[in-house]
C-alpha cells in the first residue's frame, strides 16, 4: 500500500515537472514570437477563412442531397439502384479523402472537363461526405418501427406518401444531431482541399508561413480559426441531440 503511494507520488512529481518545463518553454518561445510579419498578412487569413466557410456550406448542401438520394437508393425496389447506392457508399467510406481528392480531381474531373477547381473541390468534398450522410439518413429511416410502416400500408398510402407523411417527419429528428456533427467534419476536411491549390483557410496559412518563415505564428491562428467554426456547430449538435431525445 505504502509502496503504491510512493510510486504515485513520484509519477505526480515527474508529470508536474514536465508540465512546468513545457510552460516555461512555451513562454520562452512566445517571447521570441514575431507576430508583426503575420499581422501584415491578416487579409490573406481572412479571405481564406471566408472561403472555407462558403466552400463548406456549399459542400454540406450538396452532400445532404447526395446522401438523401443514396439512402433512398439503398431502399429502392429496383436491385440496380440498390447496388449503385451501396457501391457508392461503401467505396467512399472505404477509402481516404486524400486518395479520393487525388483520383477524382486529377483523373475524373479532368476527364469530364471540369476546369474550375473550386467547383471540383466542392463536388469531391460533397461526394465524400454524402456517403456518410447517406448512412445517417438510412439509420433515421430505419428507426421508424415496422408497425408504423404496416399501418401506412393498411390505410392505403403509396410509397411516396409513406415517406412524406410518416417516415421523413420522424426520421429528421434522428438525422439532425449527427448531421450537425457531419457539418463540423466537412469544415475540418475542407482543409485537405489546399492540396488542390484551392485558396481556403489552410492554404492561406501555408502561404503566410512560406512568406514570413514563421511557423507557429501562421498555424496557431489556423487552429483557432477552425475551432471558431467547429465549436458552435458542435454545440448545436449537442443541443439538437438533447432536444430530440426528450421530445419523443
Amino acid at each position: 500500500m505504502t509502496r503504491h503511494h510512493t510510486i504515485n507520488a513520484v509519477i505526480s512529481v515527474l508529470l508536474g515537472a514536465a508540465l512546468l518545463a513545457a510552460v516555461c518553454f512555451a513562454i520562452l518561445q512566445a517571447l521570441s514570437w514575431n507576430w508583426s510579419g503575420v499581422w501584415a498578412y491578416r487579409e490573406v487569413f481572412w479571405r481564406g477563412w471566408l472561403n472555407t466557410i462558403w466552400i463548406s456550406a456549399a459542400a454540406l448542401v450538396l452532400s445532404v442531397l447526395l446522401g438523401l438520394l443514396a439512402a433512398l437508393g439503398r431502399r429502392a425496389p429496383y436491385p440496380a439502384l440498390r447496388w449503385l447506392a451501396t457501391g457508392y457508399v461503401e467505396l467512399i467510406r472505404g477509402t481516404p479523402l486524400l486518395v479520393q481528392l487525388l483520383i477524382l480531381f486529377y483523373v475524373v474531373a479532368d476527364a469530364v472537363g471540369l476546369q474550375n477547381r473550386y467547383t471540383a473541390g466542392i463536388v469531391i468534398l460533397a461526394v465524400f461526405s454524402g456517403a456518410y450522410i447517406a448512412e445517417m439518413i438510412r439509420a433515421g429511416i430505419e428507426s421508424i418501427g415496422k408497425s408504423q410502416l404496416e399501418s401506412a400500408r393498411a390505410i392505403g398510402l403509396t410509397r411516396w406518401q409513406t415517406y412524406r407523411h410518416v417516415i421523413f417527419p420522424q426520421a429528421i429528428r434522428h438525422v439532425m444531431p449527427p448531421l450537425a456533427g457531419q457539418a463540423a467534419s466537412i469544415i475540418k476536411d475542407s482543409s485537405l482541399l489546399s492540396i488542390l491549390g484551392i485558396s481556403e483557410f489552410t492554404l492561406a496559412a501555408q502561404q503566410v508561413n512560406s512568406a514570413t518563415y514563421s511557423t507557429l505564428e501562421s498555424y496557431l491562428p489556423l487552429a483557432i480559426g477552425y475551432l471558431a467554426l467547429t465549436l458552435p456547430v458542435s454545440i448545436l449538435a449537442r443541443y439538437l441531440e438533447h432536444k430530440f431525445r426528450y421530445e419523443t
Binding site: 408504423q148 399501418s151 393498411a154 407523411h165 410518416v166 419523443t248
Partner: peptide, 8 residues
C-alpha cells in the same frame, strides 16, 4: 391492430 399503430 393489437398495438394500435398510430403515428406517434
Amino acid at each position: 391492430f393489437q398495438s394500435w399503430n398510430l403515428f406517434p
